[in-house]
Design a protein around this nucleic acid. Structure first.
Lengths: 230, 230
DNA sequence: TACATTTTTGATGGGAGCTTGAAAACTAAT
DNA sequence: ATTAGTTTTCAAGCTCCCATCAAAAATGTA
């Protein structure tokens, strides 16, 4: 995986490059927009990390230039917390944004997330999905049906079930689920998830004490079983 | 969870320490950077809380020194909001920032959030690996399959098998395996590994008493045989 | 072969993790 | 302020996992 990192602050590029390389990524750096553009046109990259504030050509400008020729995933580094910047960056075509100051670790995590997301979206998820276990998740009407019987879920329960069902079989830890449902700055206990899972099971499992749809992975988290047989 | 709290204001360390301890964290304190560094080198900590303004060595300096030897999560305490601009450029490497004045509750919340985030980091291992012996290790679904038959392993068993399979043919001593599985600060018997190996063999070997996948290297440890023939 | 060392195996107590129900804290609307 | 619905916390009970021990088997060596 090749990453192009564009920032004029050498300290940032050095640290980030080191972290990303340690994670097995090939990293090239550019200190301004023009260099970045030429580099991108001449070499294939799998992901771009762009500072919003750059000398010469701004990050947003580069972003839109790139978007004319490629759909490569882009992560924006924004200096200000202002909401406008986020919207601006995203509306132009960035896949994620990170506000400074940030930790290198967070950047690595977001890079992984974006790459995973973009790679998986080869089969764009439909708005209504039905699984072999009889469950139907309707993201448009925002409702769940089990064998054509409507099930009423609270917003949180819907999010959790949706997150698990989005990647059938994949284990999600309580921490991951908390972040999906409550966001990064939740000051509570991860065990909340257990309570929600309990509620969901009571509503969708025929035998909640012996679940067939949302399975527990001891010591790790929960996963969604899409097939009927178990 | 052990936390190292570095601040020269005794009032702050006292209050924060009390709050964090009440939440079940083990808290040590240091009043300057040099002490903090030596403490960190001699004892294992799971998280650092650093004041940006410290006598002698500054918080940013400590941060970068620590980053050279460890990727431990770091939370920075910054004195004024006005300095945000400087922080943005200078102090990359911390995982979160809290500006004074802050409430102890907020610090506790951020500590939890950072720990949750860092613990969630998935290993940079490949997601799914299959071997000639018919074994598949699926790190996403967190499950093992032997010829497409699902095998249920406990977390510890999963870690051990994963560690051995990561470097096929390479011998890992019990000490190394203990460190991978239980961490650096385990004061128990290395022979625990034997018990886990036994369990794993019962689950994945056709003839556990004559293992073909996890082989014993007498006097040294265990190794993983990836090929079918043995 | 005989001996010492190392590994395997089975059993067990303690502990960690999960589930569950109930109550408390929040939210949003009346 | 009251109420209903939702989210979070807490404690009790339960299941399952793990570290330890001792006996038996296997391995390497003299």
């Amino acid at each position: 995986m090749r990453i192009l990192l564009v920032d004029d602050e050498k300290k940032i590029t050095t640290v980030l490059k080191a972290y990303l390389q340690q994670e097995g990524f090939q990293v090239s750096t550019a200190i301004n927009g023009l260099i970045a553009l030429t580099m991108f046109k001449e070499n294939p990259f799998d992901l771009l990390i762009l500072d919003l504030m750059l000398p010469g050509m701004s990050g947003t400008k580069i972003c839109s230039e790139i978007r004319k020729i490629s759909s490569v995933p882009i992560i924006m580094l924004t200096a200000k917390v202002e909401e406008e910047d986020r919207i601006q960056g995203l509306s132009i075509g960035a896949d994620d944004y990170i506000t400074k100051p940030f930790s290198p670790r967070e950047v690595v995590a977001r890079v992984r997330a974006v790459l995973r997301r973009t790679n998986n979206e080869t089969s764009p998820l439909a708005d209504v999905i039905s699984y072999d276990n009889g469950l139907t998740i309707d993201n448009i009407q925002h409702e769940i049906r089990l064998n054509d019987q409507e099930i009423l879920l609270t917003p949180t329960e819907f999010k959790i079930l949706g997150a698990l069902a989005k990647h059938p079989g994949r284990v999600l830890s309580r921490g991951q689920l908390v972040e999906i449902v409550q966001g990064h700055d939740f000051d509570g206990d991860d065990r909340v998830i257990d309570a929600h899972i309990k509620k969901i099971r009571q509503k969708i499992e025929t035998t909640p004490s012996n679940p067939q749809i949302i399975m527990t992975v001891y010591g790790i988290g929960y996963k969604f079983y899409p097939s009927a047989g178990g």
